[in-house]
Every structure is written in C-alpha cells, then in structure tokens.
Design a protein around this nucleic acid. Structure first.
Length: 718
DNA sequence: AGCACGCCGACT
DNA sequence: GTCGGCGTGCTC
C-alpha cells in the first residue's frame, strides 16, 4: 500500500462532505496496514493492546506528544503503562526496513488497541525494567506542571522520576504497616484552629491552611504531627522543605513520633542509589510518608492525604532545571488533583501565601496576638546613621544600642549576628546618610566601574563624576557590605573573651550549644541554638536587604529577619533582637509588631493595584534581540496580554542558564540579549502558557532563527 | 537536534 | 545521464 503519503489536504475551500469522505478514506487506508500489525521482522506482537503509547525522553517542546510503538509478544507482560522503555527514534524508513535512528529512553503511558499513526509502527526495542515508575497520577501531575510553566512534559518527568539504579530495584516490596494512632495536638494547641485542623486530617478530610508558625523551635514537631494525623486516616503525607538541614529537622521530629522505617527522607545528600531505593519504597506503596527537598514534591505517594511545604519564600523551593517549577505551585496542583489537604507553613508570609488566604482557597492558621507577643523576642530598631559613640562599639562598626545589647545578652547565652551575603550589595549609598546614589538624569542606580571609583548609571550608562548626596550633601559613597568573616573578626576584637563562630554558604553550622558565643551568619544559614534559643540577635545592614531593586526586596528582608528572630528566646526570657534599619520602613515595622501576614496582605493589595504577580501572571521571554522581537510577533497571545519591553539585559543578569542556552544555540558571546515580560490578568495564566508554548514549538519546528528562553513566574522582576 | 528526502547545477 | 549541493520537514 502506498497510501501513507496521502495526507489529507487542509483546504478550506473543499465542501464539507468531500472533506469528510477524504478523511474517511485516509483513515481506512491508514488503518489497514498498521492498525493491528501482525508481525515486525517476523516477531509476533502482543495479542491484546498491541500498541504502546510512548513518551520519548527528549525535552524538546515541539516533540511534546506521544509516539506509538508496536509491542512484541515477548514484551507483552512487562510493557505496562509507567515502565521505562528504549525505542528507536528519529530514523527514516526505506522499503519497510528501519535503519539508523538512535535508541532513546522513554516511558509507556498507555496500552491501546489501535494507533492513529498512518504508517507502520516500529517495535519497542526493550523494556528497561518492569518497575512502573510513571503511574497515571504522576503523569497527570507532570502534565499539569508542564502546562503551568509552558514547559515540555519530558522535562518535567525528568524532574519527577529519578534515574534508574538497577541495584536498588532488587529489594522486595513490602506492604505498609498499620496506620499510627492519632497524635496529641502538642504545639498545635497554641493555635485556636490547630487541634481542629489535626482532627480534620485524622478524619480523612482535606483542610487547606496557611500556617503562620510561632517563633521558636517547635515547628518541625508540629509539621510531623500534621503528617502523623494524616497517616492515622490511612492516607499518605508529604512535606517539602527548602534545604537539607530543614528536612533533617522535620525528619528527626517525625522519627520521634513514628519511629524508624515508616517514612523516608528524600534529599540529594543520600546519594543517587539510596535515594532511588527510598523513592521506590514510596512508589511501591511500602512507605506512605515522605519528607524531602524540592524534588520530593513529585514523590508518588499512594492516596496522598496531605501536601505540606515549609517556608515557601526560600529560594531553594524553585527548581533550577527547566521549566523551573516552584514547590509551592506544584503542591497546590497536587492538592487540587489528588483532593488532599494542603499546609503551607512559615514564620514569614509570602504574597502568594497571602493570596491563598485572600482568595479563600486556604484558611489562615495563626495564633492570637497575645500568644504571638508572648512567644516573640523583644524587637528594637536602631537607625543606620546612628554610629556608636563608644570606641569599642565603633571598632565593631556597631551602633551603641546594638553593642550594649550584645554585651548584656552574652551573659545569658549565644548571640546571633545576621549579615547580608556578599553580592547582595545593591547599589552605592551615601556614606553619611545612606541615601542610595542615583543618576541625576534617569534616577537609575549608580554603580562603580573598575577599581578607580569611576561611577556610571546602571540604567542609562551615563558617567557620573562629582556625585553629591542630594539629602545631606555628602560626597563619599559606601558600597561594601562587610561579609561574615570580616564582621566576625571585628566582633572578635570588640568581645575578646567570647568565642566567635561563622556560618555561611560554604561552612554551615548545624546548631550551636547554649552558652556565650557570637554566631555570625548569612541569611538562611543561621544555626538554631540549643536550650531556649539565642539570647539576642543582631540584624545588620538592613539597608542592603531593603535597597535591592527587586519587587520582593521588602518581603525578603522581613522573611530573613523573622527567620533569624524566630531562633531567639521569647521576650519573657530576655530575648532581644536589634535590627539596624530605618524604623519607619514598612518591613521594619512589621517585624516590630511581628505581623508577617499583615505585611504580605498589604503587599498583595499593592501588587493587585499595579498589576504585578502573583495577582497577574507574568512570563519572561529572553534571547537575542531579533529572536525576541520575532517570537513576540509570531505569538498569538491572549487578547488581555500586555507586553512590557523588551529591554536590553545587562550581562550580569543573563545568568548561567541563559549562557548555556546561548552556547547550545550557537549564539555569539558578546551578542545583545533582551528580555520582554508578558503579563496577563488573573485566570489567564494557562492561556498565556499555552500560547507561549505553541509559538515556541512552531519556531523550533521551523528552526526559525535563534531560540528564546521562556520563564513563567520570573524570579527577578525589578 | 539529527537525519532523510527532494529538487536544481558541474561532472565522469 | 548522474552525483551531490544543502533547503525543508519529520521523528511512531
């Protein structure tokens, strides 16, 4: 039969009945030779459902669909939906014989009776393992995540299914144990709605809550209790934490409640084989509870009862591989699909969390004001210009109040000193009054070029010579935020009898003992203190956190401060926090009142007014200038969509991912790259993602010029 | 991305 | 006549 090349013409002029006839002919012709292919190279095919629908493991957006393969009889039994297979892909066909075409991996998603493909089907080359690692529910979740992020299914599946480690598959599957008993509320009784929330979980309900955790070290235990209550209902539970340390804490708390062997910890530092073994235990239904970092968000827990996330404002929750899904968004999708409960807990509150409450999707789970006040440390602010008068304080670059607080607190326990990470330095500021230095022409931030103090506007590139502070007339600029080590040295000199320890990117301390010590840490690396917690915390260089030209600067500063302050003992036990930042600023006031939710709600209202995410949804399109322009011209965006820019991307903002993409696309190194933002109103996010993906797919198919990078929910919108 | 097919210019 | 240029489109 030579009818295979007779594809239906897509002429709108053809009368409908003729078109229908044509279609029918094609379908019939197509069906006959291939629908139930008897043999392939003489091998018998499976009796029933001889067609395997396969997701090929290639991330290319334009291949984002399934391909049908014939199932040889010998593979019939193992070739079940969800298994990994190898197939020949990309080969041409000559006189019925396949040639060339590499073997690539894929997953069977479905077994069917017939194929729509108007051609002969190639047979599956091999079933790699009978393990059904991509079951239907997981596939559906991956599909939803790919759609949400304008990414390809294969990319998401790669995040969701760990690579195969043959040895790990040898262990036998064991049935799960009996559900545990319903736990006592423990620390949840400090929240008016806490016990009821646990009860709902234990009774098989699906409550959804945004939990503002009280300061102090009890949150891992509370998280573990929520999971245990869910397990008691006979369902599974999942908790995703921003890093290995936090996951280890939650893991310890759950082990305390459940004993060993009833849950698994899925983190990167277990190593690939152990990780796959644990993942398999979950996939096989032997284990019903999972604690882990972001990759665990896809853990194929059977009958999920609770999807929980801790501290969604931490950057660790965004995956850095395409399409960069955020754990909070994935768990939201999961909770909706799998009709499970949802718990988002943190000391701080992101605007996204506030939106969940505001929209009524989730209920707030917070303690009342008195309880908050009784659990929080005392917060004191000190303006940044207020340099210490004592020589000792000056030596440590500390305001007097800060210095005194440290000195007194050191008599009762350890003191935490939070310093911003190097590289967090936003822009130059007046040395005297800390007013940010701006371009007189366009008000862009000034930056230093080269070692010799030459100044330039980061926006319009105008050179600035002879800068003078518009507020105080100062002529000297300050840029350097002192890093953890330098601060530690200076504090060591100011408090010679006290041990100084540092915790930061490369050397993160797990915890510190209860006893006088200075602990200098960068945000996110603060070790909890033993006993009742730190006697005091010093939050330095607030201006650096707040001055960042980022939509989230305020939210993030408050987040950093609350996380550190939550490690300090309560005011009743003398716990004090000194924040060095302008006291009238909103995040500073929110810290003083310990009101993260109020801050996030106000921020949310503002975003709504300005049409910023998460109230609207945004996506970034970046790439070489012409590519971005062409792409935008070709894309049929939803009518409500609004395109901002494109604007040139400064080299510093281009990032490793873009550099990699550029290398792959063969782009020149010095090439000007641009970025446009596309914004749609609430409810049109799916339409935007679909439009972006369709256009990307078309472009790649046609191979029309250099590729653009798409990023839904870009993290750094200034 | 590969890789095959296809339709126009210099060659044994 | 035929080999082969790489433009165009598909991969079950």
């Amino acid at each position: 039969m030579s009818s295979d090349n007779g594809r239906p013409g897509r002429s709108a002029a053809e009368p409908p009945e003729q078109l229908a006839l044509l279609r029918e002919t094609v379908r019939k012709a197509a069906r006959e030779p291939k629908a139930r292919p008897r043999t392939w190279r003489g091998a018998a095919l499976a009796e029933r459902r001889p067609v395997a629908r396969v997701l090929v493991d290639k991330g290319l957006v334009h291949l984002d669909r399934y391909f049908d393969y014939a199932v040889p009889a010998a593979m019939d039994e193992e070739a079940q939906p969800g298994v990994r297979v190898r197939v020949r892909f990309g080969a041409g066909e000559r006189e019925g014989r396949r040639e060339g075409g590499g073997l690539i991996n894929g997953f069977i998603v479905e077994r069917v009776e017939e194929s729509d493909f108007p051609g002969a089907l190639a047979p599956l080359a091999q079933v790699l393992s009978p393990e059904r690692v991509l079951p239907p529910e997981l596939l559906l979740l991956c599909r939803a995540v790919a759609d949400r992020y304008a990414g390809s299914l294969a990319d998401v599946v790669q995040l969701a299914v760990p690579p195969r480690m043959a040895r790990a598959e040898k262990a036998a599957a064991v049935p799960p144990g009996e559900p545990p008993a319903v736990p006592e509320p423990g620390g949840w009784s400090r929240y008016p709605q806490g016990p009821a929330f646990l009860r709902a979980l234990a009774e098989g309900g699906a409550p959804r809550a945004v939990w503002t955790a009280l300061p102090g070290p009890r949150w891992p235990d509370e998280l573990a209790r929520a999971m245990t209550a869910t397990l008691a209902s006979g369902r599974g539970a999942l908790a995703v934490l921003p890093d290995g340390r936090a996951a280890a804490r939650a893991d310890a708390a759950l082990t305390e409640l459940l004993g060993k062997g009833r849950h698994v910890l899925l983190t990167a530092d277990a190593g690939p084989e152990a990780r796959y073994r644990r993942w398999l235990a979950v996939s096989r239904g032997s284990v019903r509870a999972v604690i882990g970092t972001r990759a665990a968000m896809f853990a194929p827990i059977r009958d999920l009862g609770l999807a929980a996330i801790w501290d969604d404002g931490e950057s660790g929750h965004s995956d850095d591989r395409a399409p960069q899904p955020h754990a909070r968004e994935v768990l939201l999708l999961r909770a909706a699909h799998e009709k499970s409960a949802f718990l988002l807990g943190a000391h701080a509150c992101t605007v996204e969390a506030a939106q969940l409450v505001e929209s009524g999707w989730a209920r707030p789970l917070a303690a009342d004001r008195e309880t908050v006040r009784a659990s929080a440390p005392r917060i004191r602010t000190v303006g940044d210009g207020d340099e210490g008068r004592d020589p000792a304080a000056r030596a440590a670059r500390l305001p007097t109040l800060a210095w005194q607080t440290v000195r007194e607190a050191l008599e009762h326990g350890p003191v935490l000193v939070q310093v911003p990470r190097r590289g967090y330095v936003p822009r130059l500021a007046c040395e005297r009054c800390r007013t940010p230095a701006r371009c007189v022409q366009c008000h862009g931030p000034l930056e230093a070029v080269g070692a010799r103090e030459a100044l330039r506007c980061a926006w319009c590139a105008r050179a600035e010579d002879g800068w003078r502070c518009p507020e105080c007339g100062g002529v000297r600029l300050r840029a350097q935020v002192f890093g953890a080590r330098r601060t530690a040295e200076e504090l060591g000199r100011a408090f010679p009898s006290v041990p100084v320890r540092t915790s930061g990117r490369d050397h993160i301390l797990d915890s510190v003992p209860d006893g006088p010590a200075l602990v200098v840490s960068t945000p996110g690396a603060e070790p909890p203190a033993g006993g009742p917690g730190y006697a005091a915390a010093l939050l330095l260089d607030g201006w650096a956190l707040l001055g960042r030209p980022d939509l989230r600067a305020d939210e993030e500063a408050l987040h950093r401060w609350l996380d550190a302050a939550a490690l300090v003992r309560c005011a009743g036990e003398g716990g004090t926090v000194v924040v060095v930042a302008e006291p009238t600023l909103r995040p500073v006031q929110a810290l003083v009142r310990w009101d993260p939710v109020g801050h996030a709600m106000r921020e949310l209202a503002e975003r709504a007014e300005l049409g910023f995410p998460p109230v609207s949804r945004m996506a970034a399109v970046s790439g070489p200038s012409e590519a971005v322009a062409e792409y935008l011209a070709e894309t049929e965006l939803p009518v409500e969509a609004e395109v901002l820019g494109p604007v040139p991307l400064p080299p510093a903002r281009q990032g490793a991912a873009a550099r990699g993409a550029r290398a792959a696309a063969g782009g020149a190194v010095g090439e000007q790259r641009e970025r446009a933002l596309v914004r749609v109103p609430p409810g049109r996010g799916a339409a935007l993602a679909a439009a972006l993906k369709t256009a990307q797919s078309r472009r790649l198919t046609r191979r029309a010029g250099p590729v653009v990078q798409l990023r839904v929910d870009p993290p750094d919108i200034g």
